[in-house]
Amino acid sequence: MHISMYQSSVPVMIRMLGHLKGILHKGIASAEARKFDETVLLNGRLAPDMYPLRRRVQVATDMAKGCAARLSGFEPPVYEDNDATMEELFARIDKTIDYLNTFKPEQIDGSENRPVVSKTRHGTSHFDSGQDYLLHYVVPNFYFQISTAYLILRNNGVEVGLEDFLGAH
């Protein structure tokens, strides 16, 4: 069975961004129930030198939109990283999902052997193929950001479990 580049990217990222929204909603509910400000969660970190929760969401959405754009030969849209509330993060996730939904399989399929250049604030990365870019850079980074967001919430007492991360099957 052949799995296409599109199937391996866009639908997977849309699904996981939806799960990210779900765990963030649980974070808000937990903050309200325990009577603390949501900014505690937004600024939560696992270690002092790691990004806070809000930055994890920003990077996850950047990875998703960047992946779809670059695999289809476009430059990704740039979002300002000034999200300061959960509602703003939800809007960012929704905007990213809407953007991902504009892509069709034929725009991304066939990119597995095409070189990809990724320009970020950290510099320019060159990948020999779209498949290397997707499987060795985007997927691990995307899941790392969402996993770390999950763990920050969990570390702050939010009752989330594996089913929240994976969703229903």
Results as ranks from 00 to 15, higher is better:
residue 31 A to V: 04
residue 109 D to R: 01
residue 50 M to E: 11
residue 56 R to L: 12
residue 156 N to L: 13
residue 135 L to M: 12
residue 87 E to A: 14
residue 42 L to I: 10
residue 39 T to C: 07
residue 104 K to D: 05
residue 103 F to D: 06
residue 73 G to S: 02
residue 41 L to K: 04
residue 85 T to W: 02
residue 136 H to I: 05
residue 31 A to P: 11
residue 8 S to P: 04
residue 13 M to Q: 03
residue 105 P to F: 03
residue 64 A to P: 05
residue 68 A to W: 01
residue 139 V to Y: 11
residue 144 F to S: 05
residue 122 H to K: 12
residue 71 L to K: 00
residue 61 T to Q: 04
residue 93 I to D: 10
residue 21 K to R: 15
residue 28 I to E: 14
residue 41 L to Q: 02
residue 118 S to L: 14
residue 145 Q to S: 10
residue 51 Y to G: 08
residue 91 A to V: 13
residue 44 G to F: 00
residue 150 Y to W: 04
residue 26 K to S: 09
residue 73 G to P: 00
residue 14 I to F: 03
residue 4 S to C: 05
residue 117 V to F: 07
residue 39 T to Q: 11
residue 137 Y to N: 11
residue 5 M to A: 15
residue 65 K to W: 00
residue 82 N to W: 05
residue 51 Y to W: 15
residue 80 E to D: 14
residue 127 F to M: 00
residue 158 V to H: 04
residue 50 M to I: 01
residue 92 R to D: 00
residue 26 K to T: 10
residue 83 D to Y: 06
residue 98 D to E: 14
residue 83 D to G: 10
residue 23 I to W: 06
residue 145 Q to I: 06
residue 34 R to P: 09
residue 30 S to C: 14
residue 142 F to C: 10
residue 167 G to K: 02
residue 82 N to K: 14
residue 142 F to Y: 09
residue 127 F to A: 06
residue 152 I to N: 07
residue 4 S to V: 08
residue 116 V to K: 02
residue 24 L to I: 13
residue 115 P to I: 02
residue 39 T to N: 14
residue 141 N to I: 05
residue 130 G to E: 13
residue 86 M to D: 10
residue 25 H to D: 13
residue 115 P to D: 06
residue 105 P to R: 06
residue 169 H to A: 13
residue 10 V to M: 07
residue 82 N to C: 13
residue 52 P to L: 01
residue 13 M to V: 04
residue 169 H to N: 11
residue 133 Y to A: 05
residue 18 G to H: 03
residue 102 T to K: 13
residue 137 Y to I: 02
residue 124 T to K: 07
residue 119 K to N: 12
residue 104 K to A: 08
residue 19 H to T: 12
residue 70 R to F: 07
residue 4 S to N: 04
residue 9 S to G: 06
residue 81 D to F: 11
residue 126 H to P: 05
residue 140 P to M: 01
residue 109 D to Q: 07
residue 122 H to C: 07
residue 129 S to C: 02
residue 149 A to T: 08
residue 156 N to M: 14
residue 145 Q to V: 00
residue 6 Y to T: 03
residue 98 D to N: 11
residue 119 K to Y: 07
residue 26 K to M: 07
residue 119 K to E: 14
residue 79 Y to V: 07
residue 127 F to V: 01
residue 125 S to D: 13
residue 157 G to L: 04
residue 70 R to W: 04
residue 95 K to A: 15
residue 23 I to E: 06
residue 93 I to W: 11
residue 130 G to F: 12
residue 112 E to C: 00
residue 14 I to D: 05
residue 38 E to R: 07
residue 148 T to Q: 11
residue 135 L to Y: 11
residue 77 P to F: 05
